[in-house]
Every structure is written in C-alpha cells, then in structure tokens.
Design a protein around this nucleic acid. Structure first.
Length: 866
RNA sequence: GCGGGUGUGGCGAAAUGGUAACCGCAUCUGACUCAAAAUCAGACGGGGGCAACCCCUUGCCGGUUCGAGUCCGGCCACCCGCACCA
C-alpha cells in the first residue's frame, strides 16, 4: 500500500466524527415505533452481523448498500426505519470460553462494543436506540414466549427422530446444516442418532411457502428457485403393499411414488436402513443388522460422495401387489432409499428408473418394461443398457394398457383409491425444523420435564428463563446440563421435583423474527401490533446469498406462525430482497507456501510482487473471496483510518454492480480518495457568495445547468434500480462538466449555475458520501441545516429536455454519419438532412432507396435496392 | 444429472431492439516542477488508408429484423445452487 503523501485539503479524520456527532445531536435517523400515518414509510434492513469481534469488508459492503438506500429514501420523503442489532448467540462464544477461559457473554459483549464502534465510524444512518443483541434476556425472553404460543397453537411438536449428530460440536444439526455429510460449522463427519427433539412444524406451511414465492417479485429469481426446490412439491401416490407375514407390527408396507403408471413394472420393494421394517428384520437377523449398521456408518456422508454404488440386503420378507393378485415380490433394505423422503420405502421399477435399474442389475432382479416409447413395438421392446424414463404408451399393464403416462397415472390412482390400496397425494421435500441444540450459549427452551406431569411449559410469569452466569466449560457436553442447580425446579403443575429442559434453540430461531422486534424493541411483549402493522414488511432487505434458503425460509415461517398466534398481519416479512456479491482480493504466497496478507505485499509496476519486509518473491494467486485462511483480507478499520469512511463507501459503490462479486484493490480505493479530494476542491470555488437567480444565462451557464438537471434525472433513475455504479459515472461526468465550465467565462449567470451544480452534487453524493456532502453543503453560502435532513434535488424538466439531439444516419443498417436536429423534428426534414450528408449522399448515389426508417430523435436508416 | 446465472477493450464496466465500449482503474504523452509526488491537459478495442473514409469486433454457429450485446434456436466455457427426492 502506498502512503498518501500529498497535502490533504479535506481533513476527513476531523470532519467525519464531527458530522456523525451532528447527526446524532439532531437525531436525524430516529423514528417512532409507530410511523406517522401521513407519510410513506420505508423499512431498510441489512442482515444483522454475528459479533465475531471485527467487521470485515463483506459487512462494509452490506451496510454501505443499505445505508445508501436508507439515506436516499429519507431524502425522497419517506420515514425510514433503519436499525442494527447482533446475532449474538452461537458456538464461537463457547469455543472462546473453552479455549481462553472467557465467559461467552463477556466475549460477546466486548466484540459487540468493538464492532459497534467500527460501524459507527462508517457513518451509517442507523437509529441506534433500537439496537439489541439476541443474547439480551429482553429479547430471548420474548422469544421464549413466542415459542410457548406456537406450542399452544400446535405449531411445535416434540418427537423422537433420527438426527444429524455432529460429534465434534456434540450437538444436533438441521438437515440444512449438513453440507456434503459434514457439519456446516465444524466440518466433522455427521452421524445418525435417535433423540427427542423439538420441531417447528414448518411443513404445515409448505404449500403456502411455495405458492407465495410467486408474489415475491422483488426477490432475485434464483433465490425463489432455490426455495421452491427446497420445499420440493411432487405429485404422486401412496401405495400399500400387503406383507405376506406381518412384520414390525405392520400388515402392509407403504410407499410413495410419482410413477403409479409404472406399478405393473414392479420388480422389488426397498426400504431405507432406518425404516422400522429394517430394524425389525435386523433384530432377528445378524447379517441384516450388520448391513444396517454399515449404512449408518456411511450416514449421509460417504453416500453423498460415492453416489455410484447401490447396495442392498434381501430381507426375505415378501409383499403382494394391489393390481397383481397372487404375485409376490421381495423386500430389500437398500442404501439409496432415504428415510427422510416420502415413506422411507419405494417400489422398484428398474425398466423406468435409473436407480432401480442399477440396483436390479447389481442383484439380478427382473426388469419388465411397461412404458413403450413411440416407434417401438410393445412385443419386442426391452430395457437393456439404461432405464427408459421418457414418455410412451403403457403396455403389459392390464387395465392401463394403451394409455399415455398421464392418463395411466390418473387411472392407477383411481383404481388404488377404489380398492383402498392407496391414494393420490402431494409429497413435500421440506422437513420439519428441528430446533433443539445441546449448547449453553443460546436461548433456553422454556420447558420443564416432570416425572409425573411430563412435558410442562414454563409459566409466562417465569420468563425470561435466563441463562446461568456461573458455568464451566472444563468438560465436554452442555454446561447447562451439568450445572449444579440451574435445571432443578419445582413442577409448575404438581409442585414435585422437576428439571428444566437444558437444550437451547438453534440460533436460526433468533434471527427469524428480529426484523419484527426492531419495530418496538423495548416492548414487554414480543411485538406491539401498531408498530409491526405500521412498519412491516421490510421494504428492502439486503444480505448475502448464503442465506438464500435457511434464514429466509425460517423467517417466512416465523411471520406465518406469528400471524397464526395474533402477533402480525403480514405473512411475508421481506417485500424486497437484494443479495450482494462477495468482496474478493488477490491472494499471495511466500516462497515457503505460506499465505501473506495484502498489507505485507508490495506489487511492482512490472506485475511482480515481493514481501514488504523481507523482499522475498511472492507468488500472486487467484482472486477469491476474502477469507482468514487465505489471508487475503483487508481490514476495514485500516482503510477507514487511512482514507476515511466516505472513500471506502464510494469505492464499494463505484467499482461494479452490487449483486456481482467485487475485487478490492488498492488502486480502486486510491481512485475513490482522489475523487473525494477533487470534489472538495471544486466546491471551494463556489464558497463565499450567494448569487441570486440571474435574469439571463449565457450559453455556457445554460449548458452547465442542463448538465446539472440531466444528472439529477439520471442519478435518480440509477438509484431506483440499484445501479449505483452507473450513478457514480454520471456524478463523475457532472464534476467534469464543472471543471470544464471553469475554463470558460465566469459571468454572473455562470456563478449561479456553478453553485447550483455544486450544491446538487453535494446532495447527489450524500447517500454515498454523507460526511463530504455535509462538509460541502455547509461551505456553500445560502444553505442551512444538514444534507441528511434535506430533500432530494428535483430535476427541472425544461432543463432535462435535450435542446438538440444527435441522430445516427445509417445506410443498410451501417452507421455512415450523424446529424444534429431539434428534438421532435419532423421526419421529412430529418430524412432530407440525413440524405444530404456527403458520406450518405455518396453511398445513395445511383441507388434506389426502397425504404426510409425514421425513429424520432434516434435514427434514420436508408434501405437501398440491391 | 437437474435448475439458475455469467461471457463486451489490459482491467472493473455502460448501453428503452436504434451511433458498442459512457464513467472509472491501469498505461502512455504533454504542461507545471531543479526533480518527484499531487494536480491539469491529451491519447487509449483491432486492422487498413496521406486523407476523406473503409473493414473487423460484445464466447461460437444459425435465425428473426431496415437494424441484434439486447429477441429466438443450437452449441462451448466458467460460476453458483440442488442432487440416489422414488
């Protein structure tokens, strides 16, 4: 990094804190819990941060984007709710406690203090009075109350279930937190384990969560697609196959299929290793038991990676077939059948399903074809190399013969329903949300377990159930569980000895309703109706794409659940969603292969790089997302210290479109810094006197005024569409136009035009560079108050309208000349002028013009005969 | 495999179906300076031509259109998400 050696005219280090104080003193960004009915509201929210200790560039980008929107909307006359808080529960605090003996609360509070100061240095327009952390008892106590209301409303249930067990963290993970068979945080291989767990019944809302995606037209298409796939609706049938001999207390085996049209092509039935029937067989058959145990070891991990090999175990159990009386089929345990999907059992139709085909081939099972593609003969068609899963006519299928797939599906379902052997159903991929975590640093689940009364909700007047402070992390497992006294309480029902639930909520619960709490953060109920009715939904939510599924789906569920329990009227919490790209940087490695921080590397003009202190040669690696492991991070604090917050914000906005990944470069920041200084210097030229509106303007002054008003219109349009980089380009142009004008006459009209341009510039850059904007605005004569409270500039339509337009002249679609014309000039005159252009006339000479295209103020195109 | 996205100068990029490359970064040249930095001015997709001008160029091939970066069809590459979902 190069030091800025030049004499600095704008002292951002003094100005930025001063303006931040001025905004705080004027309470510019504070709004009421209940918005004014008379003014439009706008709720801007960025995903709140986990208090890891320091902000990173991803935060800077996220909060800069949100702040620009908030300040812009405020200038446009909206009352803007723009809050900030902390997603403060979670495992890192416990890790810090184990590793360094710091209490998780102490660690978290000190991180929050640090990060709050860093965010405040960015000059964000936040109503800090609304700040809270999810580890505040005021917050998580209300969350406990929500849970109890959800429980009473039938939205929560407790059940035994196979869970994903993270042996490294000693906790349960949701399916969504298992990535490639590994814990999303620890990276440890996940095992299957049977535990009693609390579940939010999110599947109740599956149809609504899917259908409502259509209405979220201010969400990125890909996020909606990801959610739709995650919810995973599929139409099919449940089919019951009678067991020849009852097994596991079952007289039949239930299967889900989307292909009831291929029921006559059945070759076998297969159940998941976790299926009760598999357990029952394993109980009396050692070989089956060892197969099941092997599958469990593989868990979701190896299986996901080694997708190829299909393995199974023939249980010896046999089932009948609803359409084929007298026939019987084998029941296998198969490693590719998922207990979590459908009924945990399938019927195998190898001819028309590739997985079943692979399995049947491996174990020598029959492959009877029942769907005949067009052009094939039912008598001779056979499936040999791979399954045929395309369309065709049904054959070898009794009453279904000759039907199309769709007709056969319907007919098969009718037949199943008539005999009671099955029925048509819609199946969902979405699973209920398991929320129990065996951890200390989370919100305690407000439940008491009594030997006599069973599961008893904690009485409302005992909330919040606070975490105990005196906990030890000197042994593995959950400190709440081995706390000497905390969990021992009297049963609220019978008064006998009972124990608190020692599990805490998944931290995704904490972040599923914080947007609602921000509306009335100090209420002694979870939310107050007038506040949430006034402010929700969030008009613009901004954050990373990594939360496209989990956090957003859970929040959508919570809004629905809070509607059902009377807290909200809004079922969709986020009307608009913007997903920003990542911040990337070059990575560097020393000769010995270790990663180097950018601040320790010097780029040479020839493109090579050396270590700043040792001079050793450095290899420049890929440009990738900033990460601690690659050490390609840049500390926002250092950047703000060296260049100021406005420069950092400006560079972030100017570099590229915000939804794309941006590359953080030293040259880019330095460029932003130069513009900050340039703007400041330009503004000095209009200090000192306040010109009144002149009687007339010279041509140069008029040109500058037109540039000013055109810029207002263009920047406004760009802001509306999140095209901040385009807005920046237009602002650069206006700055250039002022500098150009300074070379010309400086009459009275020009003085006015120049001052108007400078003031406009200050207001236009205010959302992006709020401190500099105030500094400039205050230096101009005739201004008063803060830009933060000023209205957005209005473009004068008369000055925006072009005085003359450049019309492209084409011959046969190729550009041959341009002409100037008055806007709206009649077609005849424009075409005549175009034809008179020497270059055009030359090309038209001797040719027959068959068509003259004229698009007003745009283009003339002559089409000539060949 | 399925779904989504992206592909334009050295780089980040711009462009209601209507002058492709605005603006910035980097680079080069000039002014200022003893000198450098900063600042200011200019050049900057490729090729041809003394010039006027001409040709080529938005991943590739084709189509629609007076006109395509933009719309349609088919490929290629890369990125992201999901993935034994029955």
């Amino acid at each position: 990094m190069n030091e800025i050696a030049a004499p600095v005219s704008y002292d951002f280090a003094a100005a930025e804190p001063a303006w931040q104080r001025a905004w705080a003193d004027a309470r510019c960004f504070e709004v009421d819990d209940v918005p004014d009915a008379g003014r439009p509201k706008y709720y801007v929210l960025e995903m709140f941060p986990y208090p890891s200790g320091k902000i990173h560039m991803g935060h800077v980008r996220n909060y800069t984007l949100g702040d620009v929107v908030a300040r812009y909307k405020r200038a446009r006359g909206f009352q803007v709710l723009h809050p900030m808080g902390w997603d403060a529960f979670g495992l890192p605090a416990e890790n810090a406690a184990r590793e360094r003996g710091i209490h998780p609360g102490t660690w978290t509070r000190s991180n929050i203090a640090n990060m709050r100061a860093e965010l405040q240095r960015m000059g964000l327009s936040i109503d800090w009075r609304r700040e809270f952390a999810t580890c505040d008892a005021d917050y998580y106590g209300q969350q406990q109350r929500l849970f109890l209301d959800f429980l009473a409303a039938g939205l929560v249930e407790r059940r035994e279930s196979w869970v994903n067990w993270d042996p490294a963290d000693g906790t349960v993970l949701a399916n969504e937190q298992v990535i490639d068979g590994r814990g999303w945080r620890s990276g440890a291989l996940v095992e299957k384990k049977l535990l009693s767990q609390w579940f939010f019944r999110i599947t109740q809302f599956a149809p609504d969560l899917l259908a409502a995606l259509d209405g979220l037209n201010r969400w990125p298409e890909r996020v909606r697609t990801m959610q739709a796939k995650w919810i995973g609706r599929s139409e099919g049938a449940r089919v019951r196959f009678p067991l020849d001999v009852p097994e596991a207390g079952l007289s039949d085996l239930e299967v889900f299929t989307t292909r009831p049209d291929t029921l006559f092509g059945m070759s076998f039935v297969a159940v998941a290793p976790e299926h009760p029937l598999a357990a029952s067989v394993a109980a009396r058959n050692e070989a089956a038991a060892s197969f099941v145990a092997e599958c469990r070891r593989m868990g979701t991990s190896e299986a996901a990676i080694e997708t190829a090999e299909k393995r199974g175990f023939d249980t010896g159990v046999r089932v009948g077939h609803p359409f084929l009386p007298g026939r019987s089929f084998p029941v296998w345990i198969a490693n590719f059948v998922l207990m979590e999907y459908g009924t945990g059992a399938i019927f195998g139709c190898p001819a028309h399903d590739q997985r079943d085909f692979d399995f049947a081939t491996a174990y020598g099972l029959p492959i009877p074809p029942v769907v005949v593609p067009q052009g094939e003969d039912a008598a001779t068609f056979a499936v040999t190399d791979r399954a045929y899963d395309g369309p065709g006519l049904i054959a070898n299928s009794g009453f279904l013969d000759g039907l199309t797939n769709d007709a056969a599906k319907a007919a098969a379902i009718r037949a199943l329903e008539a005999t009671g052997a099955g029925n048509g159903v819609v199946n969902w991929r979405l699973r209920d949300w398991g929320i129990s975590r065996q951890r200390y640093w989370g919100c305690p689940i407000p439940i008491i377990h009594c030997a006599a009364c069973g599961v008893v909700p904690a009485p409302l007047d005992t909330l919040p159930i606070r975490l105990p402070e005196d906990v030890s992390f000197d042994r593995p497992g959950n400190p709440l569980d081995h706390h000497p006294t905390w969990k021992h309480v009297a049963c609220p029902q019978c008064g006998g000895p009972a124990a608190r639930e020692t599990d805490t909520f998944d931290t995704f619960v904490d972040s599923s309703w914080y947007y609602a709490r921000f509306c009335s953060p100090n209420a002694d109920v979870p939310v107050t109706r007038a506040a949430v009715d006034g402010w929700l939904p969030v008009d613009q939510y901004i954050g990373g794409i990594e939360h496209a599924i989990l956090h957003l789906l859970y929040s959508r569920f919570f809004a629905r659940a809070m509607c059902e329990t009377g807290y909200l009227a809004v079922r969709e919490p986020f009307a608009g969603l913007f997903t920003q790209g990542m911040v990337t940087h070059e990575s560097y490695r020393g000769a010995d292969g270790r990663w180097l921080y950018p601040e320790d590397v010097e780029r040479r003009p020839d493109g090579s790089a050396v270590a700043r202190h040792t001079g050793e040669t450095v290899t420049v690696g890929r440009i990738e997302a900033m990460s601690k492991s690659k050490r390609n991070t840049v500390d926002p604090g250092a950047i703000v210290g060296r260049y100021g917050a406005d420069t950092a914000r400006w560079f972030i906005l100017s570099d590229n479109p915000p939804e794309r990944d941006m590359e953080w470069t030293e040259a880019g920041v330095a460029g932003g810094y130069r513009f900050v200084q340039r703007l400041y210097r330009l503004a000095q030229g209009s200090a000192g006197e306040a010109p009144a509106f002149p009687e007339s303007f010279g041509p140069d002054a008029m040109a500058l005024r037109r540039a000013t008003h055109r810029t207002i219109a263009l920047v406004t349009a760009s802001f509306e569409s999140f095209a901040f980089n385009v807005a920046v380009a237009r602002i650069y142009e206006l700055a250039g136009a002022i500098a150009d004008a300074d070379k010309n006459v400086n009459d009275y009209g020009m003085k006015f035009a120049r001052r108007e341009a400078i003031e406009t510039l200050a207001r236009l850059v205010a959302p992006a560079m709020p401190h500099l904007a105030e500094e400039i605005y205050a230096s101009l004569p005739g201004t008063s108050g803060l830009v933060a409270n000023a209205a957005w500039p209005e473009a004068d339509p008369a000055l925006v309208a072009a005085q003359s337009v450049t019309i492209a002249v084409q011959v046969m679609g190729k550009l041959r000349a341009t002409i100037e014309a008055a806007p709206g000039a009649p077609a005849d005159a424009v075409i005549a002028a175009a034809a008179a252009e020497p270059n055009v006339a030359r090309l038209l000479d001797g040719k027959r013009v068959v068509k003259r295209i004229h698009v007003p103020d745009r283009i003339v195109n002559f089409v000539v005969a060949p």
